[in-house]
C-alpha cells in the first residue's frame, strides 16, 4: 500500500460521498445520470464477488463493503426516493453500446477463462467507460451544477492517482496488471477534457457550462 493508492481510494470514497451528500441535502438528483450510477453498481457487484472467496485485508474488506453500500443507496435515491427529480429526458445514453463491447472484450482479453475472473475483467473494462452516460448528459444539457463537477473531479482524480500507484508498484514490487493499467489509462483520458474545464472554469468560481 503506497501513498498514491490510499489517496486514490480516499478520493474515490470522497466522490461517492459528495454525490450522496448533494442528493441528501438538496433532496434532488437533477443532473445526475442514473445510468452511470447503475453501471458503477454493476462494476462493484461484479468485481467484489471475491468478498465471498478471499480475505485480503480488513481495509480491503471494509472499503469494498462501503463502496457497494453507497452505490446501492445512490441507486435507491435516484430511482426510488428522489425519482421525481431524476432528469430522465437528458439521460439518454444507450447502455447496450457500452455493455455489448465490454462483455465481448472481457471474453477475448482476460487472465483466466473462469466465471469470477471474467466478471472481474468485465468490471475493469466497464469501469473505464461507466462515466460516459454522465458526461453525455452534461453535453446534452450543456451545463453541470458545481457540486456535480466536484464529484466528477474526485472520481477522475482517483483514477489518475491509481496510475501513479501502478508506476510506483512497478518500480518497487515489479508488479503490473496490464488489464487494469490499460483500462485505467483509457478511463483517465475520458476525464482530461473535463479536468480542463474544471480548472479553467469551476476553480475560478464560474459554473461549468458548455459553449
Amino acid at each position: 500500500m503506497n501513498v498514491f493508492r490510499i489517496l486514490g481510494d480516499l478520493s474515490h470514497l470522497l466522490a461517492i460521498l459528495i454525490l450522496l451528500a448533494k442528493m441528501w441535502r438538496s433532496k434532488s438528483c437533477a443532473g445526475i445520470s442514473g445510468k452511470s450510477q447503475v453501471l458503477f453498481a454493476l462494476v462493484f457487484s461484479t468485481r467484489y464477488l471475491d468478498l465471498f472467496f478471499v480475505f485480503i485485508s480488513l481495509y480491503n474488506l471494509v472499503m469494498k463493503v462501503i463502496y457497494l453500500l453507497c452505490s446501492y443507496i445512490t441507486i435507491y435515491m435516484i430511482y426510488g426516493k428522489l425519482r421525481k427529480t431524476y432528469d430522465r429526458e437528458n439521460d439518454t445514453f444507450r447502455l447496450e453500446f457500452l455493455l455489448i463491447p465490454v462483455i465481448g472484450l472481457s471474453f477475448l482479453e482476460n487472465y483466466d477463462f473462469i466465471p469470477t475472473e471474467l466478471l472481474w475483467t468485465f468490471s475493469i473494462y466497464l469501469e473505464a467507460v461507466a462515466i460516459l452516460p454522465q458526461l453525455f448528459m452534461i453535453s446534452n444539457t450543456g451545463e453541470a451544477e458545481t457540486i456535480t463537477t466536484h464529484y466528477l473531479f474526485f472520481l477522475g482524480l482517483y483514477r489518475a492517482l491509481y496510475l501513479a500507484n501502478w508506476i510506483w508498484r512497478y518500480h518497487t514490487e515489479k508488479f503490473y496488471d496490464q488489464i487494469a493499467i490499460i483500462s485505467g489509462v483509457v478511463q483517465t483520458i475520458f476525464y482530461c477534457d473535463f479536468f480542463y474545464l474544471y480548472i479553467t472554469k469551476v476553480l475560478k468560481g464560474k459554473k461549468l457550462s458548455l459553449p
Partner: peptide, 10 residues
C-alpha cells in the same frame, strides 16, 4: 509476473 488472482486493489 505477479500473481493476478486475487486482485488486491479496489
Amino acid at each position: 509476473y505477479a500473481l493476478h488472482i486475487p486482485h488486491d486493489e479496489l
